[in-house]
Lab assay of single mutants.
Amino acid sequence: NKFNKELGWATWEIFNLPNLNGVQVKAFIDSLRDDPSQSANLLAEAKKLNDAQA
Rank of each mutant, 00 (worst) to 15 (best):
K26P: 00
K26A: 10
E13I: 14
A27D: 05
A27N: 10
P36T: 03
W12I: 11
F15L: 15
F28D: 00
P18T: 13
L7C: 12
L20K: 00
A27T: 08
V25A: 04
G22L: 13
N50H: 02
P18Y: 05
L49D: 01
I29G: 01
T11F: 15
L43D: 01
W9I: 11
E13W: 13
N50D: 03
N4C: 15
S39W: 15
R33W: 15
S39T: 12
Q38E: 11
N19P: 00
I29H: 02
N50A: 02
N16F: 07
G8Y: 15
L49M: 08
F3L: 12
E6S: 09
L17P: 00
I29L: 13
D51H: 07
A54C: 12
L43M: 04
V23P: 09
A10N: 03
S31T: 06
D30L: 05
R33C: 15
N16Q: 10
E6T: 07
R33K: 09
P18L: 10
A44I: 09
Q38N: 14
Q24I: 04
E45W: 05
V23W: 14
Q53N: 05
D51M: 11
D30W: 03
K5E: 15
Q38Y: 04
F28A: 00
F15G: 07
E13L: 12
I29A: 03
S37G: 08
W9V: 09
A10G: 05
W9A: 12
Q24C: 03
F15M: 15
L17K: 00
D51S: 08
Q53S: 04
E45S: 06
T11P: 05
D35V: 04
L32W: 04
I29P: 00
N19K: 02
G8N: 13
D51T: 08
P18H: 06
A54Y: 07
F28S: 00
L32H: 00
I29V: 06
L32M: 10
L7A: 07
K48W: 05
L42G: 01
L43T: 03
A10I: 15
N50R: 01
A44D: 09
P36V: 04
L42D: 01
E13Y: 15
S37E: 07
A52M: 10
N1R: 06
E45P: 00
N1C: 15
P36G: 03
N21H: 07
D34E: 14
E45K: 09
L42K: 08
K26N: 06
E6W: 10
E6P: 04
L20A: 00
K5D: 15
A27W: 13
L42Y: 04
D30K: 13
L42T: 07
P36S: 03
K26Y: 07
E45Q: 11
S31I: 10
D34T: 09
T11R: 07
W9Q: 14
N4S: 09
W12S: 13
W12T: 14
L17Y: 04
Q24P: 00
I29D: 01
W12C: 15
D30S: 08
N1K: 12
F28H: 00
S37L: 07
A44Q: 07
K2V: 08
L49P: 01
D34F: 10
K48S: 08
N41Y: 11
T11C: 15
A40D: 08
D35H: 09
D51R: 12
G22S: 13
N1A: 05
K26D: 03
Q24M: 03
N19W: 13
E13F: 14
L42W: 03
L43E: 01
A44N: 08
N1F: 03
G22V: 11
R33S: 06
D30F: 03
W12H: 15
E6K: 06
G8D: 15
A44H: 09
A10F: 15
N1M: 04
S31C: 15
F15C: 15
Q53R: 04
L43G: 01
L20S: 00
N50C: 05
S31R: 14
E13Q: 12
D34H: 12
A46T: 01
N41Q: 12
D35L: 06
G22R: 11
L32C: 04
L32K: 00
F15K: 11
A46C: 03
N1G: 14
N19V: 01
K2Y: 11
L20M: 01
E45R: 07
G22D: 12
A40S: 09
A54M: 08
A52E: 11
L43W: 04
A27H: 13
K5I: 06
W12K: 12
A54H: 08
Q53K: 04
L42M: 04
N41D: 10
I29Y: 05
A27L: 10
L7E: 07
E45D: 12
I29T: 03
S31E: 09
A46P: 00
